[in-house]
Design a protein around this nucleic acid. Structure first.
Lengths: 206, 206
DNA sequence: CGGATTCTTGACTATTTGGTCAAAACCGAG
DNA sequence: CTCGGTTTTGACCAAATAGTCAAGAATCCG
């Protein structure tokens, strides 16, 4: 009974996680309420608490549910590929994720803004190691003259900042750009603009 | 009596705004509590509510207190200056503000993440106008061949994203970089890295 | 079908939280 | 010092919120 998952359980846990993602992404852990999540999941609060006994449990589950996806694109950067092409792919992938799942980006933003009480360990271990590894790759590329001399870690931060900005600050972007955000081709135009600047910024000059 | 401000009032309002900035910046409006703010301001809750009658009033006051400063650097971009130098100055100034007053940056981040319920109008009017004006300046520079062909609005977004990232995601930056964040010269090194990539990214190529 | 198990929820509790109020403490001008 | 206004706070209230519980409804399995 402990680990057994019925079909209903699988379905309902998914519904809850998806509802909770939206609510936590908008208001953060402290600002979100269990009632809000239950309402969005269209079930009673006690029913929701039947699947996750505490608010914390839902929050942790949502975070874990998203953490791995988040790292995948960075992990995929290949030391043996062409530097500009690898970074183009990385930036494109991150922009795509921000566009397709902005709530995930906002969830992290809220968690980090609050001081990363839950994912602090993750940041200091797995994330840190991965960044150092990939910074090493970039550093090697720079050493071979295949990239302009750039600080590898700050380059990674910059890519995170820019790509996640379009998810986290969507409301601001909309306020400035208006309806054109929803026009087809907007994401491509954004990708084009970001790629132009960043890739030109790191392309080796002679 | 209505508008009269005694010395004590001026002092205490400052203390409250400063305490509230920290709390709202960390937990957002909904996640922050009046008790937390009162504790940080080292006064009783009723005393705090003597100066600001509602939580909303404190929040609005803190936001307004910070909004104008936030726009100043962008407003200072001068069409008649050298494009690269103007943007270097803008980026440097924004990075400096993020370093000196990270709480202000986080306050906005939280507000925008929550859907900008309070500053939504501001974003759609004053911010929008200012961005369009300065985008026009950048567009003119590009037209004159003094900058590489870049989308002006996305350039502004990119600068915001990168500069504010170091304030908003400070915890993450620290997790990855460790204690070196506190070493003297870190901010200069960051500015160097950011300026190198962005400015090279938009410098005209021939 | 029928009994055991799983799922669902109305009603409830304890705690937290935003906000009030009246009275006490404080302060500053005469 | 004294008196009027200002500031401060302990005690309180109502609403919101996390979480419980027992009992009813649905589902599964033989």
């Amino acid at each position: 009974m402990a680990q057994q998952r019925t079909r209903i359980q699988l379905v309902n846990r998914e519904i809850i996680l998806s509802a909770a993602l939206e609510v936590f992404a908008t208001h953060g852990f402290r600002g979100a309420t269990v009632d809000q999540i239950a309402a969005r999941a269209e079930m009673s609060k006690p029913n929701l608490l039947y699947y996750f006994r505490r608010k914390q449990d839902i929050y942790r589950a949502v975070l874990e549910h998203t953490l791995d996806d988040w790292l995948a694109p960075l992990a995929a950067i290949d030391r043996d590929g062409d530097p500009i092409e690898e970074l183009r792919r990385y930036i494109t992938l991150k922009l795509q994720m921000s566009a397709e799942n902005p709530a995930a980006s906002r969830l992290f933003a809220n968690e980090v803004l609050a001081g990363a009480p839950v994912i602090g360990d993750f940041l200091k271990t797995r994330l840190r190691e991965l960044v150092h590894e990939k910074a090493g790759v970039v550093r090697a590329w720079v050493g071979e003259g295949r990239l302009a001399p750039v600080d590898p870690t700050h380059l990674i931060f910059m890519i995170w900042a820019v790509t996640q900005h379009y998810a986290d600050f969507d409301v601001q972007v909309r306020a400035v750009l208006g309806s054109q955000v929803d026009k087809p081709g907007f994401h491509e135009q954004t990708a084009q603009a970001v790629l132009t600047i960043v890739l030109n910024g790191i392309r080796p000059r002679d």
